[in-house]
């Protein structure tokens, strides 16, 4: 994946996070932010986010793996891992 497309994908993911975490602007979201404590997403909200992300990017992410994700950084890493698998 090129740097430009990487940035574009990250931007889309962060925008989705901002959409799920109402009241938080995309530009304020940092990789270290915790979905629950920092962004106010509960367990349902977190899974909704990952579900939306899988729909948007057309990724087949197993439930068990998604359930382990708790930060913005981990969300990005999960998405990139499955995007790479898809492209391989």
């Amino acid at each position: 994946m090129t740097q430009a497309s990487l940035t574009e994908v990250n931007g889309r993911i962060v925008a989705m996070i901002a959409q799920c975490a109402s009241g938080v602007r995309a530009q304020d979201i940092k990789p270290t932010h915790r979905l629950r404590e920092d962004l106010g997403l509960d367990s349902v909200g977190s899974m909704e986010l990952l579900s939306m992300l899988a729909e948007e990017l057309d990724l087949d992410v197993p439930v068990e793996e998604a359930a382990q994700v708790s930060t913005v950084e981990a969300t990005l890493a999960l998405a990139h891992r499955y995007l790479a698998q898809k492209q391989a």
């Binding site: 899974m47 909704e48 992410v61 197993p62 439930v63």
Partner: peptide, 11 residues
């Protein structure tokens, strides 16, 4: 459900 949709099942 899980096999058919993976994490998308949550939507």
């Amino acid at each position: 459900l899980s096999t058919a949709y993976g994490v998308r099942a949550f939507n």
